[in-house]
Write a protein that binds this DNA or RNA. Structure first.
Length: 912
RNA sequence: GCCGGGAUGGCGGAAUGGUAGACGCGGCGGACUCAAAAUCCGCUGAGCGCAAGCUCGUGUGGGUUCGAGUCCCACUCCCGGUACCA
């Protein structure tokens, strides 16, 4: 008996590969390292090890990178293909709160489970290089990078980060001033706060999303559109808080410009550009009637300033209180006042009304513009016109200067506001003749604009900016949507921020020698939750024992920073640690870093598109800082990015819309029931929220790993989402069964391989398959690679014995896709070395050509006949053959061709 | 609204401007079997036709071309991102 016993074959080879260390790869300088080989660094986005384990949808990308890695090993590359765990995060902490089990214990258990599941997929990871972000030996270096950020500043002139000690040197030498003040003239305390304000990691008071019920601030992406926490649906409040910030905005231009250096999906590059939101324009300074300090606005359309007929401040704008007069001035229209007797009360009432609005309320308001007059006028610097100053919530404090000049003629929002408040509208760009809309935002010559009249928009912009700068009324500028990165969390299960606070507010880095700064034991992991929105966000680490919280240095008591880092921190640099994960002397040794990250960084990075902005932007930012400081050798971390799709599956909802376990649903004649109740079929991403997960273990038992791998690759291109259908798996399983029977006699176990080489059509097919599969491997087109192997395998069914050349090639072409069966056949054919490092087959160009082929004959563009012709046929021969074809004659009526187009030997097109 | 991406048989999907639907699932018919499963063979876009064959056919409508799923213009719908960003 020698049936295809996939369970035995797969478990035996997985064990063997593990024992032999087949997938271990040495670093430069290590024994066994071969520096004549090219390198490939092939990386997966590492997972958060959840308690639920993997379902069949998770490893789609991992299968893809595994195939690509195996292919490149066979092509003779040194392949770095590691896997690790992004193991800090809220679920572990919540589990600890619920069960009393320490997050570290829970995390370790989940990691072990993940590792076991991934090994069962036969992935060729070098597990010796695995990292977990929660390991002290790992987060020691996360903390170290934080200290690099803390100890650096951004030199705008050189457009790069530099050690802050160099700033101090330049200040002391008088080559620079501190905001215009000579260093020597600055009091010592001010020197310190000036330096602190320059660091890439700094403390600032900023408006944050504070969720008292969860007891932490949240990132914007953790807050839903209606202003509640994504986790738990608790209210979230905007309030100013002193928090750690990272100066990612300093890198805004490089983060945009250097996207040109990478081979990424265009959609992701656009998403990053939009997220950074660079817009070029100008600041324009408007004098305020009766006041000393002017108001500065940002606009992308300085060319339209002659049409600025009013001005709007955000309700929270700090200037508002200064400029409100005691009474409404002359010229106040009734519609501007909310019907309230004086400006102060009107502004107060408007603020009350809008501050209670959540972001969603502002949206479903259908963009109805509301606002109120402040009672004060500004002066248009170009034409001296008095223009009323309003506050309105359509102007946001968080963007630009929180103040705008309103040009209703060119801006739809301003137009709408102007109409409801009876404000004048002046067009400053001539719309085309057929334009019948309101605000015109397109191109055209300037009108009603004094010295700008007749200029097109671009020219008018540069002319007015020059005028503003010469006359001291403003300057060209650039603003960004990107904000600095709010980096502190009040949670327990994260990296402690390694900073000490002195009694007088001095900040000091924990000495490198004291890293890692580990988390203290606490009795209660619960965050300091409260239902009082005014409660101070107290970090969970405030519950740490005093001997952790306080450090005595030279008789002075320093307090530890009690905030922890957000979950993004550890994933910002893990790809560097894989290079030498156990090195406790440096983050990454330079020689190995230059080898593995050489040229373009990671050669292939595969993961879900949901990380298009956050993780990928944060990681690029950290990498650039490390690059500036000389710790890495490439400006970009990930040379080539690929987004895999998702596995989708049917899901089922009961009458209340609640999801029910999909594998308990039964179908009878197109209707679906769950425990007797009718349910509705829907469709979505596989996962626990839709209760439609398929456990890979079930598939392994019934069909084996190779089948599952092939199936997931076969059902569609790697970058598109595709539906899971357990029914369809049999197709690929049959393929492997058939392949086995082609090679092995199931009765005797004898190999059915001959000594003869293939000839004729089979030989041509063999070499064409090598060619096609090779190209598919390069392009990650694994679905068509599988299909090619199906075809070749089907051709073998009619052969009594597999010809020797075919027998040598087929397992090797299959090895990246279905490594276990390929290794087994290779072994049975008597090969001493593992197929993992067997050379990838090369096709023979001379053997893919055939002598005859099918020529299509078209008459007036329609296919009328197909005839077998020699590939070397000439045009006159082809035409002669075509004109005697009965099928062709039926359509030409024997007429002479008026025109002949030949793409020989495949197509002959005749026009009559 | 704006920015991306997409739409091909019953289903998943293939197709450097050159034979649309490779490959697989499902379906139909047959072989083997007492029977079933497994396996093997054949057919399987739609319509018309006894047949040879003909007509139609890649979301819709136009266009370029000897020839368009593929290129161009206009539109519909679906998916993703983003949203009062001045």
């Amino acid at each position: 008996m020698a049936k295809y016993d996939f369970r035995e074959i797969e478990s035996r080879w997985q064990r063997t590969w593990d024992e032999r260390g087949t997938y271990r790869v040495p670093n430069p300088g290590d024994p066994g390292f071969d520096d004549t080989k090219p390198k490939k660094y092939i990386l997966d986005m590492f997972p958060y090890p959840s308690g639920k384990g993997l379902h069949v949808g998770h490893p789609l990308g991992y299968i893809g990178t595994d195939i690509y890695s195996r292919y490149h090993r066979m092509r003779g590359a040194n392949v770095l293909h590691p896997m690790g765990f992004d193991s800090f995060g809220l679920p572990a902490e919540q589990y600890a709160v619920d069960t009393g089990v320490h997050p570290a214990v829970f995390t370790e258990r989940n990691i072990e489970n993940y590792r076991r599941q991934m090994k069962a997929f036969g992935f060729s990871y070098d597990w010796d290089r695995s990292v977990a972000t929660t390991d002290p030996g790992y987060f020691r270096w996360t903390q170290w990078i934080f200290l690099q950020l803390f100890s650096s500043w951004f030199d705008d002139e050189l457009n790069k980060a530099r050690p802050i000690s160099e700033l101090v040197n330049e200040l002391e030498a008088g080559h620079r001033s501190a905001d215009g003040i000579m260093w020597q003239n600055l009091p010592v305390a001010d020197r310190r706060s000036y330096l602190d304000s320059q660091r890439l990691a700094y403390i600032d008071e900023v408006p944050v999303n504070w969720c008292p019920a969860l007891g932490t601030v949240l990132a914007n992406e953790e807050v839903t559109a209606d202003g509640r926490s994504e986790r738990g649906d608790h209210p979230v409040y905007r309030r100013p808080l002193r928090q750690w910030m990272l100066r990612i905005t300093a890198y805004a231009d490089r983060l945009i410009d250097e996207l040109d250096l990478v081979d990424w999906p265009e959609s992701v590059r656009i998403m990053q550009r939009n997220w950074i939101g660079r817009s070029e324009g100008a600041h324009i300074v408007f004098e305020v009637e009766g006041h000393v300090s002017p108001i500065r606005v940002f606009t992308t359309r300085p060319d339209t300033v002659f049409g600025a007929t009013y001005m709007v401040l955000a309700p929270e704008h700090p200037m508002v209180d200064e400029i409100i007069p005691p009474a409404w001035p002359d010229g106040t229209k009734p519609s501007w006042t909310l019907g309230i007797a004086n400006p102060s009360d009107a502004v107060g009432a408007y603020r009350m009304a809008t501050s209670r609005k959540s972001d969603r309320d502002r949206q479903v308001d259908e963009r109805q513009k509301s606002g109120v007059f402040t009672g004060t006028f500004a002066l248009n610097p170009l034409n001296g016109e008095r223009i009323p100053i309003f506050i309105a919530d359509y102007v946001l404090m968080g963007y630009g200067t929180g103040a705008i000049m309103a040009v209703p003629g060119q801006d739809p929002r301003d137009w709408e506001f102007a109409e409801s408040f009876e404000l004048p509208i002046i067009r400053t760009v001539q719309p085309p003749q057929d334009f019948d809309g309101d605000a015109y935002t397109g191109e055209g010559p300037a009108i009603n604009s004094g010295f700008l009249d007749g200029l097109d928009v671009a020219e008018a912009k540069s002319r007015i900016i020059r005028w503003l700068e010469i006359n001291g009324h403003g300057e060209g500028t650039i603003t960004y949507k990107l904000r600095d990165w709010l980096f502190s969390r009040q949670r327990y299960w994260g990296e402690p921020i390694p900073i000490l606070h002195g009694p007088d507010g001095e900040l000091r880095a924990v000495p490198e020698a004291d890293l890692p700064l580990e988390l203290p034991e606490v009795e209660d992991y619960r965050p300091h939750a409260s239902d009082d929105e005014n409660a101070d966000p107290t970090p969970t680490l405030a519950k740490a024992p005093d001997d952790w919280k306080y450090v005595e240095i030279d008789g002075i008591r320093w307090e530890r920073e009690l905030n922890t880092m957000p979950q993004w921190a550890g994933s910002c640099w893990y790809y560097l640690r894989y290079i030498d994960p156990h090195n406790d002397a440096v983050l990454v040794p330079p020689e190995a870093e230059r080898y593995w990250m050489g040229e373009h960084g990671v050669d292939l990075y595969v993961g879900g598109v949901e990380h298009a902005v956050l993780h990928l932007l944060y990681a690029r930012f950290w990498h650039k800082v490390l690059f500036d400081l000389g710790h890495v050798s490439t400006p970009e971390p990930f040379g080539r990015l690929f987004n895999q799709g998702y596995i989708l599956a049917d899901a089922f909802q009961d009458e209340r819309g609640v999801y029910v376990e999909a594998d308990e649903v039964v179908e009878v004649d197109g209707t679906y029931t769950h425990k007797g109740e009718d349910v509705t079929r829907v469709y979505g991403k596989m996962g626990k929220s839709l209760k439609n997960s398929v456990n890979p273990d079930d598939i392994f038992i019934e069909y084996g790993v190779d089948t599952l791998r092939l199936y997931e690759m076969f059902i569609g291109p790697l970058d598109t989402s595709r539906p899971w259908s357990t029914r369809d798996i049999v197709g690929v399983h049959r393929f492997l069964q058939r392949l086995w029977r082609n090679f092995v006699d199931e009765e005797t176990g004898d190999l059915l391989v001959s000594d003869e080489l293939s000839t004729g059509d089979l030989q041509v097919l063999l070499h064409r398959t090598i060619d096609a599969v090779t190209r598919d491997m390069e392009n990650l087109h694994f679905n068509t690679a599988v299909a090619r192997l199906f075809e070749l395998n089907n051709a073998l069914v009619s052969e009594p014995l597999v010809p020797a050349d075919v027998a040598s090639v087929v397992p090797r072409l299959l090895a990246p896709l279905a490594p276990h069966i390929a290794e087994e056949l290779w072994f049975r054919m008597g090969k001493a070395e593992s197929i993992v490092t067997a050379p990838w087959p090369v096709f023979d160009e001379n053997l893919i050509s055939v002598e005859t082929t099918t020529m299509v004959i078209q008459v007036n563009g329609k296919v009328r006949d197909r005839i077998e012709v020699p590939v070397a046929i000439t045009e006159s021969e082809a035409v002669a053959l075509a004109l005697v074809s009965a099928k062709v004659l039926a359509h030409t009526g024997g007429a002479e061709p008026r025109k002949v187009v030949a793409r020989l030997p495949n197509v002959l097109s005749i026009v009559v």
